[in-house]
Design a protein around this nucleic acid. Structure first.
Lengths: 342, 342
DNA sequence: AATGAATTTGACAGCGCTGTCACTATTGGA
DNA sequence: TCCAATAGTGACAGCGCTGTCAAATTCATT
């Protein structure tokens, strides 16, 4: 039915091994032979059987994207990037979410991953936050001797990663708010335990302090990246007495920023006239909101792309352990100059 | 390093074949033997090597999700459903988007798919719209002898599919609007060529006509499922003279409905007091909008789940060729009773 | 106790490919 | 001219598993 390497070998009058060499671009094949084999392979529409090759080499040409991050948007972009990188190199991406009933511990996640990976022999694994910061996961991967690249990890450590500088991004965004005249800038933190939560908050703090202001504890509230938590915390912030109420709110992601805008308008506060708002991520939501959201654009796609690429690259050429990608501050309509009387 | 079937066999004092039988739940193994082998396999953390098994059985335990649908939300849910079904059966999902520069023809998409699939031996393919209605794709799959299940195809035909009744859903939603007293109901159609576009529009028409009303051509406009197109078309609808202007707008998806709400509020129309709006899909956006959007909940996750399941199921048990899943009308806050004076 | 049938088990080949290693042909230099 | 080095090629085993088929065991029946 489907052509095998033997068919090609017979037709070309060479051994299987020679065909194999040609197919894998190995050296030591005469140019003439190489050309002939290639032509015949093409003619027969031959393509190697991945299972057989995998069995022989214990490589699978498969890369797994493993995550437990509930943000569809985030994962989708990582995934697209990874798939594109895979395709360029003849690899394929298998997607493995690791959602478990929430009570499960880290160890159980590691076990779940182990059972997935023991069954499916992948050549490498891409780990997204918060999974990429789990000791258990990392250790299991090491035991299984599977390469991995972490996306936006909290601890950069000595293993490969791709990431961006959340801290600086938050710093710059806060500086921008400051530059627009805002002094009382509310901050809604993300989910505890998420690396980005701390890094973004740190950037905010640095910026506030860099202009000689003091951090006002009541302006900092704890969300968890969800719209609902954003709404809840926005109410707390906006119900502060007028003279203490923030004139701008920096939410740690776009969903929460959307909630701030929604709550503000329900309370009769116009954005950005009465309240400036900015987010983080630049999800599709950001452009749809009215006003369109000023936010930080993360290079999510590129992180996925580069992560896969690092996995695929021949081990030798790994110049650097980590890659830090550029972000971009997207100025849109949700931030305005502070009005004099506020 | 990793336990093989031989290790288990030795330790259990039986042959490889017996272990194999136990692992595959084949009959004709004594209960005692079965229990012992299972115990030892668990103890050794044994799990079969997919490549080897694949080579022996010419199955890959891999299913591909192939799509060119740009809606992240849609694909993500299909994907999650499919992955869950796969995992239950020890399968894995590989994801293969088929985006090409837009100029490419259908045939080129089929070629692209062919080259992906010739390399990766998958056991089945899930096709989403609009790809699932491409003759070229279907034919290529048939040539490759790869099973496929289509998700929400336009032409149900004789091949397996999972879908929902878009027509009836739109019919019911329109009926609901009618029941709230609305007579001038605007309709924003989706992308031309998308099966859902026609089916939803048909349902709308049927409902309008079912109450003895005539279709008003100027109340029907052409969007393309994007937020921007929704905004554009909403403006056209809402700029109609007051006596002709719709009192309710049914957008063919949530993104366009969000645009309607946004445009309406920019024009000083309150939703739902001055204008009722409903959408289709029940994306996360629907709950985030204010007012929360009345919409049709599509069983997207379940479609993915069932599609994968159909592929995995032993060929014999395929009772029915197609499955039609239930939708749900989600009543939220964006539709109100028509005020008397309108 | 003896027979046939059903159940349970194992030996072995082979899926399609690549790694190893041995072999032959070619080249360049003494 | 001959030899060593190198380029080019192929035979063969074996990756871990399952299908086939025959052997061993058990059971039910006379």
């Amino acid at each position: 039915m489907k052509a095998t390497i033997t068919d090609v070998a017979k037709k070309a009058g060479v051994s299987m091994k020679t065909v194999s060499r040609v197919l894998n671009n190995e050296p030591n094949v005469a140019d003439k032979t190489r050309a002939r084999v290639k032509a015949i392979a093409a003619e027969l529409r031959y393509s190697p059987n991945l299972a057989a090759r995998g069995l022989a080499t214990s490589k699978s040409y498969l890369i797994a994207l493993i995550y437990d991050n509930p943000s569809i948007n985030y994962i989708s972009h990582i995934q697209r990037g990874a798939i594109d990188a895979c395709r360029e190199a003849g690899y394929h991406l298998v997607v493995e979410p690791l959602y478990l009933e929430k009570a499960k511990s880290r160890d159980e996640k590691a076990d779940a991953m182990r059972s997935v990976l023991e069954r499916l022999p992948v050549d490498g694994v891409i780990l997204t936050p918060p999974l990429c910061d789990s000791e258990g996961i990392l250790q299991t991967l090491a035991e299984l001797r599977i390469d991995c690249v972490r996306v936006a990890p909290a601890n950069r450590g000595q293993q490969p990663f791709v990431g961006m500088d959340d801290d600086t991004a938050a710093y710059q965004m806060t500086q921008y708010l400051l530059g627009q005249g805002h002094q009382r800038i509310g901050f809604i933190k993300g989910h505890i335990g998420h690396a980005a939560t701390d890094m973004r908050f740190d950037g905010y703090c640095r910026a506030i302090e860099s202009v000689g202001l003091n951090l006002t504890p009541e302006l900092v509230v704890n969300g968890d990246f969800s719209f609902e938590s954003g709404a809840e915390q926005a109410k707390i912030l906006l119900n502060l007495p007028v003279e203490k109420r923030p004139t701008a709110i920096f939410a740690s992601n776009d969903d929460m920023a959307a909630a701030v805008i929604s709550v503000a308008s329900q309370m009769g506060l116009a954005v950005p006239a009465d309240l400036s708002v900015c987010g983080f991520d630049d999800t599709p939501l950001a452009r749809i909101l009215s006003p369109a959201l000023t936010t930080v654009r993360q290079p999510i796609y590129k992180m996925g792309y580069n992560a896969a690429q690092q996995l695929i690259m021949p081990a030798g050429s790994k110049a650097e352990i980590g890659q830090i990608l550029d972000f971009e501050i997207k100025l849109r309509d949700s931030v305005a100059l502070l009005k004099k009387n506020m």
